Simulated scan of single mutants.
Amino acid sequence: MIDIGLSKMALIGAVALIVIGPEKLPRVARTVGTLLGKAQRYVADVKAEVNRSMELDELKKMKDTVESAAREVHDSIQTSASAFEKDWAEAIDSAAPLPSPTATVPAPEYKHPGKRWRLKRSALPQWYKARSGVRSKALSGAARVARYRPGKSR
């Protein structure tokens, strides 16, 4: 960029003061400052747009490489799956025959869960639980909402 030092700025200011005059100099300086600011904003916008387009190109390249890698992985999984299916079919064909469906396997005996199966059993006595505030009864979701609803006085 242009190398302007303090001495050059003073020389430009003195020439402008002589040429333009002291009455019009503040207005001209304000106009020049405004135009310079607009030019700097325009240059910054152009730089940002160029950077965005470069990043977009890089992202497109990255997307293509990821898609190609995913395609390769998908193809390799498909080939290994087909090989697995073939091996599985061979193993099933060569395996010993399954027992006949008429063979009976004893069913496990049914055990009723009990009256209070949702509650955890413990060795603590009931009076201690009541005094310390341990829950002894299961509440449904609706009952819990009704009991702990804010703003409700008991």
Rank of each mutant, 00 (worst) to 15 (best):
M1Y: 09
D3W: 02
I4D: 01
L6H: 11
L11T: 13
G13A: 15
V15T: 09
L17Y: 07
L17V: 10
I18E: 13
I18W: 13
V19E: 13
V19D: 11
I20K: 00
P22A: 14
E23L: 12
E23Y: 08
K24P: 00
L25G: 00
A29L: 07
R30L: 13
V32A: 15
V32C: 11
G33M: 06
T34M: 12
L36Q: 15
A39R: 14
Q40L: 14
R41P: 02
Y42T: 14
V43K: 08
V43H: 03
A44E: 10
D45Q: 14
D45C: 08
V46Q: 11
V46E: 14
K47P: 01
K47M: 08
A48N: 04
A48E: 07
N51S: 15
S53D: 08
M54P: 00
L56Y: 10
D57C: 05
D57Q: 08
E58M: 08
E58T: 06
E58I: 05
K63N: 09
K63A: 14
V66A: 11
S68L: 06
A69L: 14
V73K: 05
H74T: 11
D75K: 00
D75R: 01
S76V: 04
S76N: 08
I77R: 05
I77Q: 10
Q78L: 12
F84V: 13
E85K: 10
A89K: 05
E90P: 00
I92D: 01
D93M: 09
A96P: 06
P101A: 09
V105P: 00
P106T: 11
P108N: 02
K111W: 04
P113G: 03
K115Y: 09
W117D: 09
W117Q: 07
W117P: 01
R118K: 13
L119W: 04
K120D: 05
R121H: 15
R121E: 15
S122T: 15
S122D: 14
A123R: 07
L124N: 05
L124S: 07
L124E: 13
P125S: 01
W127Q: 13
S132H: 15
K137V: 11
A138I: 06
A138T: 07
L139K: 11
S140M: 02
A142R: 13
P150F: 04
G151I: 07
G151C: 08
K152Y: 12
S153P: 03
